[in-house]
Every structure is written in C-alpha cells, then in structure tokens.
Amino acid sequence: MIEYVDTLLPYITTILLISSIYAIFSLGLNLEWGFTGIINFGHVAFLAIGAYTTVMFNMSGFPLFLSVIAGIVLSGFFGLLLGIPTLRLREDYLAIVTIGFSEVLRFILLNEQWLTRGPFGIHGFERPLQDVIPYQHYNTFLLILYLVILAIIYLSLERLVRSPWGRVLKSIREDEAVPSALGKNVFWYRLQSLMIGSAIAGLAGAMLAFYISYIDPNTFKPIETFHAWIIIILGGTASNKGTIVGALVFCTFLSVTQFTNRFLPFTAHQMGAFRMIVIGLLLMLLMMYKPEGIFGKKEELALSD
C-alpha cells in the first residue's frame, strides 16, 4: 500500500504540474479567442519567447524574478508588435499570419545558435529556490507555487472579464460594428487582449522552462497552440473555469495514454501518433457537434451563426 502511494503521488504531481502550465497557457488564449474573438494560431510563439527570455536573461546575470518579469513583458511586447499590423486583417488571414509567425520564430530559435544554442537547447539553468528546497521535494514545491500562480491568474482574469473592459471585449467578439458605433476603439481593445494573452503565455513559458529544466526550439511546435485550442473548446469557449478543467482533462488524457501501450499492440511512436489522431478527431467532433464545449453556455457562444 505504502509503495503504491509512493509511485502514485509523484505521478499525480506531474500531471497537476503539466495541467497548471497548460491551464495558464490556455487562459491566455481564452482571453484572445474566447472573449475577444481573435484567432491566434501562433500562441506557442509567446510561450517560447517567455521561456527563452527568462532563461537567457537569468544566464546573463539577472536575478531570476526579474528574468521572469522580462519574459512576461517581452512576450506582451511581441504581442503588440504582431498585433499592430495584423489585427485589422480578416480572421482567416490572421490565422495564417499568426501560425507563420510562430513557425518563423521557431526557425530563428533553431538557427541562431549564437543566441539560443539552436537545436541543442539550453539546460542547467537556475530554477526558483533550487538551493533551498531539497531535491526530492522540489516538484511538490513547484506544484504549490504553480497552483498559487494559477489561482492569481484565474482570479485576475475573472475580474477583468467581468468588468466593463470585459464587456467591451465580448461585444467585439460578437459584432465589432456595434462597439464602434457606440464610440469604442475596437482596434485598441483587440490589441490589449492580444498583449495580455501573450504576456500570460510568456509566464507559462517561464513556468514550463523551470519544470522541465530544459528548453529547445522543438518544444514549441505549432501543435502546442492547438493543444491550447482543444483545452479551451473542451472546457467551453469563454469560460475560464472550463479552461482549467479542460487543461486537467486533457493532460490526464495525454499522460494516461502513455501507459495504454501495455494494452494496445503499438510501438512507442505509433502510440504517439495514435494519441494525435485521437486529439485531431476530438477537435473535429467537438467543433462539429458540441462547439459550446462541456461547460460553456450555448447562449453565450459566438461561434456558429
């Protein structure tokens, strides 16, 4: 019994850690897509910017806390840079441009080795309080820290989307002509939403780096963006609570399926592909039959009319 708990507990800790990172990452996208209606297919770029900035600032001598702040700020700033020329584009163009942006960024990370060590990645960087916390308890510490951060982000976002500011975002999502006709600067609100969403993704990037204590460009493939999309849609677009539950469900699924190859006659890479097939099918079926997600309100969903 004791041994059972001993193996199960770290396992659950791992799932919760990954879930909290994905939850924060997806909350950022949910602000952009769920509440404002911005199609961002390049969300992973900001995860990468956050992770790389934090690690590289820290390695060049900045205190860890300031490096994380730098990661967040720089992610938000890149959100601004991306948004200024593109947020006036039609939604399908925006989809293509943002996904292209994230891929180009990944190529830069891969190829500018003087800056990023390219495909070899970076490891051995400092993690928060690593000298204070005993190694065997480190993940538990990280989990508590991450849950606190998640709670803060969640509460802040709830407050924002329930404020008049959030009301403007929702009106833009549904029909931007209305807020324009009422004197709201739609473009500026969309830009704010993208900046904040990107900054939150940047924070998630720093958290990801600390957790896996290794980053390389291929951690940031476009598929991560779509993981966030699935999490949001699963949980119900425009529901922050749903996004967190979605992240938990999704990460549990990811991790449980790592063991199912005991029951299925697949090799490891086949299992990986199988998992992606299930994810793809899930995305299709959700969009086709239950676009309001598990926790979303049908009346509030501005998707299919």
């Binding site: 939604e91 999309w229 849609i233 890479h269 086949q270 992606m276 793809g280 299709m284």
Partner: peptide, 24 residues
C-alpha cells in the same frame, strides 16, 4: 451554416488526424 472559423478549426483537426495516420 458553420462559420469560417469553425471550418478552419475542423480542418486543423483533420490535418492532425491525416498526418498522424501517415506516421502511424
């Protein structure tokens, strides 16, 4: 009468399915 966005996301789902069938 699905919106353009819905169709785009479905096509991405299908892209994942198809690509991973090839890998599988």
């Amino acid at each position: 009468n699905a919106s353009r966005t819905t169709l785009i996301i479905i096509s991405i789902g299908f892209a994942l399915v198809l690509r991973n069938i090839l890998i599988f």
